[in-house]
Computed example of a mutant assay.
Amino acid sequence: MARPSLNDLTAFVTVATRRSFRRAADELGTAPSTLSHAMRALEERIGVRLLNRTTRSVSPTEAGFELLGRLQPALSSLDEALDSIATFRGSLAGTVRINAPRLGAAILVRDILPVMAERFPDVTVDLIVEGKLIDIVSAGFDAGVRLVDSIPKDMIAVPFAGSVSFICVASPAYLDGFGEPGTPDELTRHRGIGHRVPGGKLYRWEFERAGQALAIETSGPVILDDEELMVDAAINGLGIAYVASPAAEAALAEGRLRRVLEPWTPAPERVAIYYPGHRTVPPALRAFLDVVKAAREKQEQS
């Protein structure tokens, strides 16, 4: 049997983890049809079917899962070996793949990516915006961004500068018409802009004051799964929204929104980038983490 090429094995791992010829082809910079033909040729060469194909999806066979489980650590070790000589090139280069929700992505674009582009121009940050919490290792990411409390315990977390509060906001027109709630219990008489979280559940609004914690279920004319749209809905008078503070900063500063129930705002939460601690950190990711730490230290000193 002819030994498969490294390119073919890498392509198989990409298809098997992305579960899509189109997504894998986009990542590898080739055409889906070319990638499909390459996978059929690989299967013929080794004499084993590796992928189940339908018109809508692709998934590994039992043999495919076995090969994938063996190849992933091997290819990771190869990447680490190549990364280990990065310093001998004279300039740092590479790609850092990061998975983040919209809020975390906005922080990166504002505070981190400009510094990365200036200090490490040959490092590409491949930022994928996704709301649901995923396994970044199996999905092929170098790191992820989440609230500190939602990061898996086996990961190493590096907090960003500052913190995020979750606040209630509404338009002046809405508050003029419906009044302003004085306590979270009064929200039952108001229109709440619902927030559906990635798992499909409706988010319960959390409040805290003098050691008293509450979680309130709200109802209203609209349910959304995107904080920017929730802010827009509040600006347009659809009700009260419960959002992360950065999402509403501009509208609050411009007077298009006002905060309500401010004394009941829960304690701020930290946002962090996280990565697996059992792997050697690639130089490009290490550079990215250093920029995150430097930004945090700069803010703490100011």
Rank of each mutant, 00 (worst) to 15 (best):
V169L: 14
V129Y: 01
D83M: 14
R18Y: 02
A250T: 11
L9G: 01
T183C: 03
H190S: 15
R209D: 00
R45C: 12
A74G: 00
L92Y: 07
S77F: 00
A41Y: 00
S20F: 02
V145P: 13
A93C: 03
M230D: 08
R204I: 03
M230G: 13
I136M: 04
E208D: 13
D142Q: 05
I216A: 01
F120I: 04
M155V: 02
I107C: 04
N7M: 10
L202C: 05
I98W: 07
E208M: 09
S219D: 09
H37M: 11
A213Y: 04
V123E: 00
R196F: 07
S59H: 13
L103A: 07
A210E: 14
L127W: 09
R53F: 08
R196T: 09
S20C: 03
G194Y: 00
A74V: 07
A253W: 06
G192P: 11
F160A: 10
L28C: 08
Y274S: 07
H195L: 13
I240N: 11
H195I: 10
P268V: 00
V260G: 14
G200I: 04
L238C: 08
E27G: 04
R3C: 01
L51P: 11
L78M: 12
V158M: 10
P181M: 00
S57D: 13
D185N: 10
N99T: 05
T95W: 02
R102D: 13
D225T: 07
